[in-house]
């Protein structure tokens, strides 16, 4: 049996219009909430403390940068914070934060995430957006700057090294006499998780996959001997499959690590 149910012209126009009957709005809404929460927290936290947020079981040592146990990852590496301070940055923490901010903003996975969740461009597949013939994608300013991702990657790799250096501090404490001893607390585990997830996130990046072999025309050219780039590319390719997961885990871990150290220091009381 066939019945006409009306002309299509009256339907599906305007932002969010779609024939999809599933919960397509759930993912962009969750993304908006998660990213929004992190941005608000990170902004407030960055403006909250004038100096690096450090904590040590020995209170006398907690304020000394070279003898801390826990250093909030927002302030790692501490020497860069000091450098920002010495050249007169009003908020020296931004001498550090431009690196993770730039890396994450230009990250291929993050781009997908915020184009969908924040900008609604599109909010979900086969869902109408603010259609415009002036759409330029990433071909014009400011989005053409996404091409700088690999430069942020180089700095992010340095950041990974410094985060691991801070793990060395997170597993030791300094007593009143200045002696170092092994120490482990919940914060040590939290900071370890932050360093681990940051490492996995950075080394699963699409740019590093390209630079470590993906850009090659072939892996065995001329004599059939496998080049090292095939192995490096293969390894990063395996990690790259979980790049999105590592993005979220590292974002949560860095936020939670900062929150945890601030709770210990008493910033949030």
């Amino acid at each position: 049996m066939a019945n006409s149910v009306g002309s299509l012209e009256s339907k599906s126009k305007g932002f969010g219009a779609t024939q999809r009957s599933d919960l397509w709005w759930l993912q962009p809404a969750a993304t908006f909430a998660a990213l929004g929460l992190f941005v608000v927290y990170a902004t407030v936290a960055a403006f909250l403390a004038p100096g690096p947020v450090t904590w040590s079981p020995n209170e006398a040592a907690s304020s000394a940068l070279d003898s801390h146990t826990y250093l909030s990852p927002f302030y790692s590496p501490a020497w860069l914070f000091s450098l920002g301070n010495s050249i007169g940055f009003p908020y020296p923490v931004f001498a550090i934060l431009w690196i993770p901010l730039g890396f994450r903003m230009t990250c291929y996975f993050a781009r997908r995430t915020y184009y969908r969740g924040i900008m609604g461009d599109p909010a979900a597949c086969a869902v109408a957006e603010f259609a415009s013939r002036n759409y330029k994608g990433e071909s014009k300013f400011p989005f053409i700057l996404q091409n700088l991702h690999r430069y942020f990657l180089y700095f992010a790799i340095m950041l990974v090294v410094f985060h691991w250096f801070d793990i060395f501090h997170a597993f030791r404490s300094v007593d009143a006499a200045g002696n170092h001893e092994f120490y482990i607390g919940i914060g040590s585990i939290v900071l370890f998780a932050d360093a681990l997830f940051l490492t996995l996130y950075v080394f699963s990046c699409h740019s590093i996959r390209h630079l470590l072999g993906g850009g090659s025309k072939c892996f065995t050219c001329k004599d059939g001997t496998e080049k090292a780039t095939h192995k490096t590319w293969g390894l990063v390719t395996k990690l790259n499959a979980y790049h999105g997961l590592f993005f979220w885990l590292s974002l949560f871990a860095v936020g939670f690590a900062d929150f945890y150290v601030r709770v210990l220091v008493g910033h949030l009381e």
């Binding site: 291929y108 781009r111 997908r112 184009y115 969908r116 461009d121 599109p122 597949c125 086969a126 759409y135 330029k136 994608g137 990433e138 071909s139 989005f143 053409i144």
Partner: peptide
Amino acid sequence: GIALCNITKC
């Protein structure tokens, strides 16, 4: 026009 793609993965 590869730059028009904004990698939304649809």
